[in-house]
Simulated scan of single mutants.
Amino acid sequence: MSFTPPAARLTVRSVPVFRGRIGSDARSGHYAVPRRYRLHLSAADPDGLRIAVTHSLLGLERACPVTFLPAVPDCPDGGHSALRPLYDASAHHYTGPAVAPVLSDDWSGRIVSTHGPDIARDLARRFGGGRTALYPCGAESEIDAVERMCAQGIERAAQRAGTAGTGDEERAAALDTLLHTLGVLDQGLRVQPYLIGDQITAADVELWVALVQLDTVHRHHLDASAVQRIAGHPALWAHARRLAAHPAFGAHLDLDGIARRHHARCQGLEAAGAAVQILDWAAHIAPAP
């Protein structure tokens, strides 16, 4: 399946403070050694949820332990106090918020990366072994395209479509971008079970997290008509529902945490779309084994 991302160029993801990479040998500095690294994640945060699902799909519970953080950061600047020692050890006189996600090096007590996409790729490439091929050879450009579509055509477009105080034309244009993106993805899922090929890849993880955010966060600021049009992509939402039933996805879906994080951060006005839930996510989450 081939993807052409919409024309939008803005992204909703923040610029990472640290962007080290795990390499394949000692010359990289951070080379791949089981149990050397640790993840610090909040599953209520979209980046944290992406990495948590990726980590579970790869079966890396022993190779790379995870410390899960509260849904709502406990510092006034939006950071986590539990991460402050890592930030202080990794950057001299660091004054910004100690935010997640974080991949840390237990050997040095310092941060390797705070860049979600890099962390997910390094986990898959350096520790994935013969497990699920989330980044199949030859599919990198398609996965990159899906990432851009989700960040710009879904997350950013939905945010702009629901922003109070902007003009009607700007909100309408953002909604058109959102619906166009959903339509492209829905069309692809009508002819094959996953976005790329016949197995779960990183593209499906990206899309699933974007749809979770769309239904649990962004729709609260859209009108009911817009939400009904968003819901009118049956293949897309069937895909989201099917993945929610997969233990690697559903086990990390903290609906209460997402709601608390949203209410703690949100400064927008609630609209009629808040009452039009697209999926009953809790009903489709796989029970714990």
Score class of each variant (00 low, 15 high):
M1V: 12
F3S: 05
A7I: 15
A8E: 08
A8N: 08
R9Q: 15
L10V: 15
V12P: 14
V12A: 06
R13Y: 08
P16T: 02
P16N: 03
R19G: 05
I22D: 08
A26V: 14
A26H: 07
A32E: 08
V33N: 03
P34F: 07
P34Y: 07
R35Q: 13
R36L: 08
Y37C: 08
R38Q: 14
S42W: 03
A43Q: 13
P46C: 03
D47P: 03
I51D: 07
V53W: 02
T54G: 09
S56Y: 02
L57S: 00
L58P: 11
G59P: 13
E61F: 07
V66M: 04
T67G: 11
F68Y: 15
F68C: 06
A71G: 05
A71N: 04
C75A: 13
A82H: 09
S90R: 12
A91F: 13
H93Q: 12
H93C: 12
P97M: 10
A98S: 14
A100F: 05
P101S: 03
V102S: 06
W107L: 15
S108R: 11
I111W: 03
S113V: 04
S113Y: 09
P117C: 07
I119P: 01
R121I: 05
L123E: 00
L123G: 03
A124W: 04
R125P: 03
R125F: 10
R125G: 08
R125Y: 02
R125M: 09
R126C: 10
R131H: 15
A133N: 11
Y135E: 07
C137V: 13
G138P: 11
I143Q: 00
M149H: 05
E155P: 00
R156C: 10
A161S: 08
T163V: 09
A164P: 00
G165L: 07
A172N: 07
A173I: 02
A173G: 09
T177Q: 11
L178C: 05
L179C: 01
G183E: 12
G183S: 15
L185E: 03
Q187T: 12
G188P: 02
L189E: 06
R190S: 14
R190E: 14
P193V: 00
Y194N: 01
I196G: 04
I200Y: 02
I200W: 01
D204V: 08
V205G: 05
L207I: 02
A210R: 08
L214P: 01
L214K: 09
D215G: 13
T216K: 11
V217K: 03
V217G: 00
H220A: 13
H221P: 01
H221M: 09
A224M: 06
S225R: 11
S225T: 15
R229P: 00
A231P: 00
A231D: 06
G232V: 04
W237Y: 11
A240S: 14
A240L: 13
A240D: 06
A245V: 04
A248H: 06
A248G: 12
F249L: 00
A251H: 10
A251T: 11
H252Y: 03
H252T: 05
H252E: 05
D256H: 13
A259V: 01
L269M: 12
L269C: 14
A275Y: 07
Q277P: 08
I278T: 13
D280M: 08
A283E: 14
A288T: 14
